[in-house]
Write a protein that binds this DNA or RNA. Structure first.
Lengths: 139, 139
DNA sequence: GTCCATGCAAACTGTTTGCACGCGC
DNA sequence: GCGCGTGCAAACAGTTTGCATGGAC
């Protein structure tokens, strides 16, 4: 077990706290660019690299989740108490959160049958939201 | 409805067929680099751009699926007759396919309750495969 | 003084695009 | 001849890294 740091690593520095606050206080799923822009309004000297490094730090600390919502870049959200998954409307782009403990249970059960131990689940659903479904049907 | 092509677009050209054959004949989930390398062995003059454009073409044609398996780049697989999802072992990296019609049914049902019409589902599970679970337990 | 986090810019990876060529009809 | 697909290289977006600086203990 090498490379144990002799000094105190893993501090919640001002910049890291700033990034954390932005992600936590937003009810949205922010991408790095947005986080960076917001961070700049509160600390004009913060760099993009620091945002990336902070997010990596917060991810490791288990404070934020990294989402791959089908786009080329990542989104981030604060880790929720209740697990949930995401539904994207293909027409209007709206993002809807679903409470999905049932999925997790099902996943665990199905996987357990094959000896698989599930620790993490990412579910990305897409389709049409109620408004867009109606709009489609009306056409 | 503009831009109707006057000649014959959407051909399954030699290059596109080559990419399609590679994806189809592989039981793995290939990334672009691998597809490109294999393609080069059969056609040394094919370019990376063509591989990308072919994959886009095949995706639109409904012949291949693009997967975001938690890595920075994409993977591709031939569209299966039976829908399935993917389980990645966090320890050995093994990729296991799961038959998941039950998931799709559950997703449809849960979403329907909220008026959501699901057309596509991506499920990415991770955890430990039987071998690695045992290895962990033994430690 | 030591160690880590930071800022800056450059590097790097994965992907897309502009443009000229050329094949097939 | 015309249109599309192709090859090449350059551009591009997102992310990571090398290095020098600076703050906290």
């Amino acid at each position: 077990m090498p490379d144990k740091p002799s000094s105190s690593p893993g501090q919640l520095t001002r910049q890291r706290k700033l990034v954390w606050d932005i992600v936590k206080d937003s009810r949205e799923h922010l991408d790095v660019k947005t986080i960076y822009l917001i961070a700049q309004t509160r600390n004009p000297f913060i760099s993009q690299a620091t945002v990336y490094r902070s997010l990596t730090f917060l991810k490791k600390a288990g404070l934020v989740d990294e989402l791959s919502l089908g786009e080329s870049h990542h989104h981030y959200e604060a880790v929720h108490a209740t697990p949930h998954e995401h539904f994207t409307c293909l027409k209007c782009g709206k993002l809807i959160e679903l409470e999905t403990s049932q999925f997790y249970e099902l996943a665990r059960r199905i996987c357990a049958e094959q000896g698989l131990k599930v620790t993490h689940m990412d579910l990305l659903l897409s389709g049409y939201c109620p408004e867009c479904t109606m709009a489609e049907g009306r056409k």
